[in-house]
């Protein structure tokens, strides 16, 4: 069964994500147009980065109403892996599949740079190929990556190991200087209560090949693939 890569009008990382899944990980993969309503043929689905519907109003605010989102919700409920990268993360937040919200970057500017993130939970199906505490080097590129959740939600996320990645210094220290966007508690990635829905701001598809300067992103895709093939409970 293939992995789906969703295209909303305005999505712009669909081909990059498709390329890594198909050419680097040699997976069965197909594009999913935002108007599709039946995703039962899919094993997992990725909502890639971009500016879905232009991100006018607020990132992801229009995309959440796309027909495909009901089918994505069903996949999430069925326990299949759903991964939102950057704009995909924003869409998952707007759709209520993940808790919290995204604000404009603290500096009010778009930021594109390589950052370091620390793996906070190596048991996640999305990070199975990593060790807890491992530092990954990945690029970010966004204007609205300043994650926010209220204190109660944050406490819940922390208590249940649902904060998966935090921005850190190259040596793994979670410090405000390593935070590119003002995100609360340096949060770069979280997952759902059941663990099978993940959103992250960094772009793993941009660092999955040596020629691009880092292969750390590949660990994330490999984790998903391993979860699918091992059929381990999510």
């Amino acid at each position: 069964m293939p992995i789906g890569v969703v295209i909303f009008p305005g999505t712009n990382c669909d081909q990059d994500t498709f390329h890594v899944l198909k050419e680097v990980l040699e997976q069965d993969v197909r594009y999913v147009w935002h108007a599709e309503t039946d995703l039962q043929d899919l094993n997992a689905v990725v909502l890639p980065g971009g500016f879905a519907h232009g991100d006018y109003l607020r990132a992801g605010a229009i995309a959440r109403f796309s027909p495909v989102m009901d089918a994505v919700r069903q996949m999430a409920e069925a326990g299949k892996p759903v991964l939102g990268i950057c704009n995909g993360f924003q869409v998952l937040l707007e759709a209520g599949l993940l808790p919290g919200a995204m604000r404009r970057n603290e500096g009010q500017r778009f930021v594109c740079q390589f950052v370091h993130v620390r793996v906070e939970n190596g048991d996640s199906p999305f990070l199975r190929a990593c060790l807890r505490g491992q530092v990954l080097r990945m690029p970010v590129a966004h204007g609205e990556g300043n994650y926010y959740a209220d204190p109660e939600t944050l406490a819940g996320l922390n208590a249940s190991g649902r904060i998966l990645l935090r921005y850190c210094t190259p040596d793994g220290t979670v410090d405000p200087v390593a935070n590119p966007n003002g995100s609360v508690e340096n949060i770069a990635g979280i997952c759902s209560a059941a663990g099978n829905v993940m959103g992250l701001m960094p772009h793993p598809e941009r660092c999955s090949e040596m020629i691009l300067g880092s292969t750390d992103g590949r660990l994330l895709f490999e984790s998903v693939v391993r979860s699918l093939t091992e059929r381990r409970p999510l």
Binding site: V20, G49, F110, V111, C112, A141, H203, R206
Partner: peptide
């Protein structure tokens, strides 16, 4: 200047 531009999308940028 250039960190305000997305320079890694399309995953072709070998030298930044």
């Amino acid at each position: 200047v250039w960190e305000q531009y997305d320079h890694t999308v399309q995953t072709n940028t070998v030298v930044l």
